[in-house]
Amino acid sequence: MAEDIVKGLQSRIAELEQMLAESDQALEAIRTGQVESLVVDGPNGPRIYSLEWSTYSFRVLVEAMSEGAITLGDDGVVLYCNLRFAKMLLAPLERVMGSPLGKWVPARWLPALTDLLRQAVSGDARVKLCLFSTGGVEVPIYLSASTIQDNGQRVYCLVATDLSAHQAA
């Protein structure tokens, strides 16, 4: 009787070990880039997510351009920026994304930023202002802004050109 119970438990353990190994393998495959897409069940059947962004070339363009590229939520928080913009601030990218843009703008330039964002709602707008870099140095930039509607939310799209090189020349 006791032997039967032990046998039953042993086979259950073996079964669970196998299931765990399969799960681990699947996760490892995803993590190490062995899969090309992920399939996720949705209300209208499976949805296939390519692991390559369909707008791959645009992403590379934004990441490689020599201007800073930033998107802001309606509350002024940086939702996305490229490494070039973080470098203008001499700050790690992960500290700039998710932070309010106003944190990087000296107080006397904040009204210019507010004006820019207000004008951007009705069309393209641009302004010269300064940003703080992490070292406390002010970096003059040219900032242009426009807005898009993304999933019903207003998102500001900004491009920042570093003017310090131009001024030094």
Partner: peptide
């Protein structure tokens, strides 16, 4: 975008002034 907004909102509501958030774009 949704994730950043959600996490920031909860941080501001529950941890205001006592948190550091790093947002890492894995691309």
């Amino acid at each position: 975008t949704r994730a950043i907004q959600q996490v920031r909102r909860l941080c501001e509501e529950h941890l205001a002034g006592s948190y550091d958030l790093e947002v890492i774009d894995i691309y």
